[in-house]
Amino acid sequence: MAIDLILLSALLLSAIWTVMTIRLVHSVVGLALTSAILAAIIYRLDSPLAAVFELSVCSGLISVIFITTVSFTQRISKERFIVRRKERLLRFLYLPFIVIIAGLLLVRYLRIPQFSLPLSAQVTDVRLVLWNMRHLDLLGQAIIIIAGVFGVVVFFKEPNK
């Protein structure tokens, strides 16, 4: 339980850092870190397969996508950067306070009503669930990947008029 709480705190801190840091590249790194910590938590919740996916795909692939986007779009001079930093700080300064206050209020007042849990599942292997019961989702994955491929073709390959 203590480990869980530490991991959760680390997750939240890393998310806040992701939001507040000034350079976009740092922000992307922060997102990858958040994903990695999330993977550890997911692993502790008895879901190793999802943890592996989260670590490799979300923490890895999404960072690549974001880094690519950022490196194409960031054009900012040193002077602008310093001006921007002050202005940003003012806007984002409230977040830690909001989070701390909300956290304290929630710890104090959040009461979750007791609820009855459903009966235990019959199938406990994720592969069996995915292939025998949720095959429609697998079909959906195939289709959405094709849609994504066409997205790449339209956005990156097709010359503009």
Binding site: R134, L136, D137, G140, I143, I144, A147
Partner: peptide, 11 residues
């Protein structure tokens, strides 16, 4: 199925 519904809406 409510999650498959979400998947196809997203597609």
């Amino acid at each position: 199925d409510i999650f498959s519904l979400y998947v196809f809406v997203e597609i």
